[in-house]
């Protein structure tokens, strides 16, 4: 019994190393000077001879790539702000729209509710490619193509957060709502004073998952944004690698940071969100 536990510990640790290794390499790589980086991986990008190599720690750690990115890479910041402009309103809008909808599904009984909820689930699991052409048709008609709104609006009406928050609203004890009703509270008041505070876990988990999804989006921006000046980091990043290796490494790490921080901050809630998306109706 003891031996088996040790065996699985070793195996799990090995998996963890495999998973952490790329992240470790990115972070240490961002502290390598351009000379070291070019020497090590220049061959991959078409300059330099031989094969790429790597070491666990940089030989000559330096902050120079970070300074260079901050001071002398005018291209980076617009992309960073593009990402923010597209994701933050998207997440806030999602909450504004999905919160009352989730409340409606969790709190009330009305005719057609089950069919509608099923529709929301179906929309949730459809891959982007299914709605790609139809989204294009409507965005084009509204003259929103090639603008931040082309990403924000479809994101706002995603049904995924409705699903997650509905689950957390369902956990609210009915007695609490009944008591508020006896005190004469209206439906809006119940929603604002009981629903939202009690559903915080669901709200956080939906926003963190929504943020990660938006920050990592690739399909939507390549489809709806023609103008490269509007591109978010997730799309722009791979295109700078060949020109500026050192900066590309740092930019990759900086792109990763908000997502990683949000993840660590909301890790408990993310798990709850994933589990909630797994509970069947």
């Amino acid at each position: 019994m003891k031996g088996r536990k040790l065996f699985s510990f070793v195996l799990l640790s090995l998996m963890v190393i495999i998973i952490w290794l790329p992240i470790w390499m990115m972070i240490t790589g961002s502290f390598m000077g351009l000379t070291e980086l070019t020497e090590r991986v220049g061959a991959v990008l078409g300059y330099g001879e031989g094969y790429a190599s790597w070491s666990l720690l940089p030989d000559y750690p330096t902050l120079k790539p970070y300074v260079e990115l901050l001071l002398d890479s005018p291209g980076f910041f617009p992309m960073f702000w593009n990402s923010c402009f597209q994701v933050i309103p998207g997440v806030l809008g999602q909450l504004l729209i999905a919160l009352p909808a989730a409340w409606s599904f969790a709190r009330f009984r009305f005719r057609g509710k089950h069919a509608l909820f099923l529709l929301y689930i179906v929309l949730m699991i459809m891959p982007f490619q299914v709605t790609m052409v139809s989204s294009y048709l409507v965005l084009d008609r509204l003259r929103l193509m090639n603008s931040h709104f082309a990403l924000i609006l479809p994101m706002i009406f995603s049904t995924f957060p409705v699903f997650i928050m509905e689950k957390s609203f369902q956990g609210i004890p009915l007695a609490l709502i009944e008591a508020a009703k006896i005190d004469g509270a209206g439906e809006l008041k119940i929603f604002l004073n009981i629903g939202i505070p009690m559903g915080t876990a669901g709200i956080i988990s939906a926003s963190v998952l929504g943020f990660l999804e938006g920050w990592n989006a690739v399909e939507q921006p390549i489809t709806f944004l023609r103008d490269k000046a509007l591109w978010p980091l997730s799309l722009y990043l791979p295109s700078i690698a060949i020109e500026k290796l050192g900066v590309a490494m740092v930019a990759s790490v900086i792109t990763m940071m908000p997502a990683l921080l949000f993840f660590l901050f909301g890790q408990r809630y993310i798990e709850d969100g994933i589990v909630a998306s797994g509970i069947k109706e």
Partner: peptide, 18 residues
């Protein structure tokens, strides 16, 4: 095990190439 889910693909694209 959950962390890779948070890592933007763009961030590791360069590494995948390397």
């Amino acid at each position: 095990f959950l962390i890779p889910m948070a890592i933007p693909v763009a961030s590791v694209a360069l590494l995948w190439q390397i």
